[in-house]
Design a protein around this nucleic acid. Sequence first.
DNA 1: TTCACGCATGACCACTTGGTCATACCAGAT
DNA 2: ATCTGGTATGACCAAGTGGTCATGCGTGAA
Lengths: 216, 216
Amino acid sequence: MREEAALSTFRRLPPDKQERVLDAALAEFADQGYHQASLNRVVAQAGIAKGSLYQYFPNKEGIFSYIFQYALKLVRRTLTTVKEETLEENFFVRLEKSLLAGVAFSREHPRIFSLYLKIQFDKNVPFREEFLAAVRRHAGEYFGSLVRRAQSRGELRPGVPREATLFLLDAVFDRFLQAVAVPALDVTLGLHRATDAAIHQHVRELVGLLKEGLMA
Amino acid sequence: MREEAALSTFRRLPPDKQERVLDAALAEFADQGYHQASLNRVVAQAGIAKGSLYQYFPNKEGIFSYIFQYALKLVRRTLTTVKEETLEENFFVRLEKSLLAGVAFSREHPRIFSLYLKIQFDKNVPFREEFLAAVRRHAGEYFGSLVRRAQSRGELRPGVPREATLFLLDAVFDRFLQAVAVPALDVTLGLHRATDAAIHQHVRELVGLLKEGLMA
DNA sequence: TTCACGCATGACCACTTGGTCATACCAGAT
DNA sequence: ATCTGGTATGACCAAGTGGTCATGCGTGAA
């Protein structure tokens, strides 16, 4: 009850003020992580009083939860869009386009992506299990649908183990985006500051390897 | 000067006391991360006074640095051991054994592995760049040496792009270990509580995919 | 016995955190 | 002109942090 009262207050605010607050909060969470994030900094950045923040949200978790649901909506929308847009293409082309879409997403919403990364290994973040499970589920369904369609079209070598395949795709996908976003993980390829053309090239090579394997 | 004085004090301590302190500190850092780690909890756990801790180490960073160098030594030793022990085997067999060795490591030293994961996306951790760079460099050299040897023996399809291959191996390796260690990332395969036999099987399937590819 | 020195100790400090609350402000209705 | 309900505000609180320091203990040399 009180929580909803608070949230409805927030939603009644002038849009530009809402935006300032959300922006400040997302920025703070994204580059400090949940626990290190300071609400004092958030209110300073947003230009409001501390008390005001607590008239919009019940507490720190409440703010986090609000942002996190917004992020989930965005991820979901992006995945379904890409899935639909590439529905008729060949499996490996779809993989390439998915990777590129992922890169585009992490560049358009770097703070959301950064938040996602920070949550991954910090087991004390509220809603972490929920959040990660949701993301993994969406990714799993996404790749699962790609693989099923590919198999029914005969685009995959018969007898490839489905679970291992999904794992492999998930691993490559995730790591590629991480390398784009986190310079420290980007030792092999120079993805962090790469041009679009260079990224295209790397995507093609990677998917090529997945396709044809490493064996002589 | 003062730092070394402090450290030499620590090294002069009775071994079991040293161990208690290091154990408590590693445990705290491993499951709270650097910033959330509380030195009050560490001294309580180790059964020493707060002032004592500051007679052994100059500050929080100093403690962290000590642990982190210990961890690096362990990683280095493990990698070179595995490399030497499998030197004469086929490339894909080496990959399998490397993965299994990685799993063994993360199970023998879960706190070190957890610490490594926590550091990955928290850009405010001291020595982070240094630490990650060192790990990546070792991993890169390791896989690089495997791949070079494989190519010179003709075990790899000619013309595979070296960088992309290294990236792929690194990605799969890392993600596999993460899935073993972090249940939330282990949605596809059930690695977290899997038996050794099941893990063996998954490793074989994964390496099989890398070897032969996905294409029809 | 005295001295010196390495080490142990925990009260203490300044600072930051998430969160509260009494107060004041400011519309619009009466 | 007055009242009312929603909103803004920042001083304030208890709790916890990393870090310090005066004090005291204990052992071996003089």
